[in-house]
Amino acid sequence: MEEITVSIPDTVKPKLRFLEEVSAATPGVSRLEMCIQCGTCGGSCPSGADMDHTPRALFAMIRAGMRDDVLQSNAPWYCVSCYYCMVRCPQEVHVTDLMYTLKRMAIREGYTDHEAAPDFSQTFIGYVEQYGRSFELGLATRFHLAHSPLRKVGIGTLALDMFARDRLSFVPTRIKGMDGLHAILEKAKAITRDAELTGGTQLL
């Protein structure tokens, strides 16, 4: 007979710390604990239909301490930052800001290997860290991503159209104070690393 393992997450010892952790890592005041599970966020979300869990469901899971399930969710990566959820939320929960927090946590804790979105973000900021400006918002990075197995079809004509209208450039602009910016970002990262080691959740 096959043995079935039933896992009821954290009913005995809820990991309340997870909720506090997520809340603390969100800039400003998240009001996460005020969620009444009404679903306004999930209903308003333009990509809600594509998410494995709606934001509301994620918040319930965070309360239940279901760390793995929450950080594996594709939902934050489908967030388009339209902020509808945030202005409509009857409890003024900072839903969009919380999605960013979950993205950071998922990346830091290695949950995101399969996602295209973190790659995109990484690539984007890679240029920023190198030049101080984005290497043509969206499109240049799109070139880069075309090398990933996501999609290739049609990229060519689009890029040609853009070049034809002088809306794409081959050469990135580099700011003058790149050394200073570099120092600033390195310092910021160093503080973040320290916080990771010492458990300074608020800084993450």
Binding site: C38, T40, G42, G48, A49, T54
Partner: peptide
């Protein structure tokens, strides 16, 4: 009417 059916967990 666009809504999240919170019991079904679906938009």
């Amino acid at each position: 009417i666009q809504v999240e059916d919170t019991l079904a967990g679906k938009q």
